[in-house]
């Protein structure tokens, strides 16, 4: 290995959460058991046939099965053959599960036809305390154990922050592409590995005495968390859903800046640590820029060249809000009862 490559490798060594792939999780029902067994067995000996019609589209079993199939496209699992990513039987099963999930989301999200209206709803801030907002709760009343649960739950996305959205890049062109790439460049540290947002998140997790290994909290994550991440993978992997992916991305960026300010305050109030504060402080400033670029150039550029995608953009915005609301309700109802919102409570901080 040339010296300069070696020195970079050593430099990067600490806290690289994606150095290894996580173990396969515990199944949560027949669908996820079938996927786990197939992955562990190195593929399917014959056609994978399973009736998915009765499965709860937002339930633990379907969401975990889908999550496992999507994860093959990111980091895979320890001991699982990498080429199963393109196994036709697994892809066929994924298609059926996606159909259930997407169908349910489309049925649950139909309120407006205009991207401008859908965004306008996100561009206002509530006055005072909002009882249904996780960020408002954490800022005012959050306790350190709740911040740790929140961070563990969100790690399923933030340790691969902005990765699902990179898949849309080859499907864009012109103004939309230039804007999208600029924002993604920022998410990926603008050329500096220590500033990749996923790395800033691993630093935050260290401050909160959480395990930073990729996928470590998968077993602990409830279906509501898996669904938010599965939405990104679903929209990212399908060219036909590129409009929805852009709508989803815009919804995240538009709501992130004020949301991050509340979480930064929560981290400060609970004394979580400098890296924990920094992750959210960075997002206050970065996402105030990203929001502008995504609305003007990415959505503006996409709809100027493909106006027929407007209803998909709206769908992406609404589906994001719908799933975030479900996750928020799960977290807040558990925390208000002084219960863990995770499937298995975290080990106490050392």
């Amino acid at each position: 290995m040339p010296a300069e490559i070696q020195s970079l490798a050593t430099h990067d060594a600490p806290r690289e959460s994606r150095r290894t792939s996580p173990p396969l999780p515990e199944p949560r029902g027949t669908l996820s058991r079938l996927v786990v067994d197939t992955l562990r067995g190195g593929g399917s000996p014959g056609p994978l046939s399973l009736d998915t019609h009765d499965a709860d589209p937002y339930g633990d079993d379907l969401q975990l099965a889908l999550y496992l199939l999507y994860e093959l496209h990111y980091q895979g699992f320890d001991g699982v053959r990498e080429d199963l990513e393109w196994d036709p039987e697994l892809l066929g099963l994924r298609r059926a599960l996606e159909g259930r999930f997407l169908g349910a989301l489309r049925a649950n999200c139909r309120s407006t036809d205009s991207a401008e209206h859908a965004l306008a709803e996100l561009l206002v801030e509530p006055v005072g305390y909002s009882r249904t907002s996780v960020g408002h709760h954490l800022q005012r009343d959050g306790e350190l154990w709740q911040l740790r649960e929140y961070a563990a739950a969100r790690s399923l996305y933030h340790l691969k922050e902005a990765d699902p959205h990179a898949w849309v890049i080859p499907r864009l062109h012109g103004r939309a592409k230039a804007g999208m790439v600029a924002v993604e460049f920022d998410e990926f540290g603008a050329g500096r590995p220590e500033e990749i947002h996923a790395q800033l998140y691993a630093d935050l997790m260290e401050d909160l005495a959480l395990e930073t290994a990729y996928g470590y909290y998968l077993d602990a994550a409830p279906a509501e968390v898996l669904a938010t991440v599965n939405l990104m993978s679903l929209l990212g992997l399908h060219r036909s859903l590129r409009g929805a992916l852009i709508g989803h991305f815009a919804a995240v960026e538009v709501t992130s800046s004020p949301g991050s300010r509340r979480l930064a305050k929560a981290m400060r109030r609970c004394g979580a640590g400098q890296a924990a504060e920094r992750f959210y402080d960075e997002h206050v400033e970065a996402d105030a820029v990203h929001e502008q670029v995504v609305r003007r150039d990415v959505i503006g550029g996409l709809l100027a060249s493909e106006p027929g995608l407007e209803s998909d953009v709206v769908f992406g915005i609404e589906a994001t809000g719908f799933l975030e609301d479900r996750l928020g309700a799960r977290l807040l109802s558990a925390w208000r009862d002084e219960r863990s919102a995770l499937r298995t409570p975290l080990e106490a901080a050392a």
Partner: peptide, 24 residues
């Protein structure tokens, strides 16, 4: 902005939301 000179989206319109009021 509380991160002046950088924008932190504090320019946004602020609304009082009743439980079932329309967002606008």
């Amino acid at each position: 902005s509380r991160t002046y000179p950088w924008c932190d989206t504090s320019h946004r319109r602020r609304v009082r939301r009743d439980e079932n009021a329309p967002p606008d």
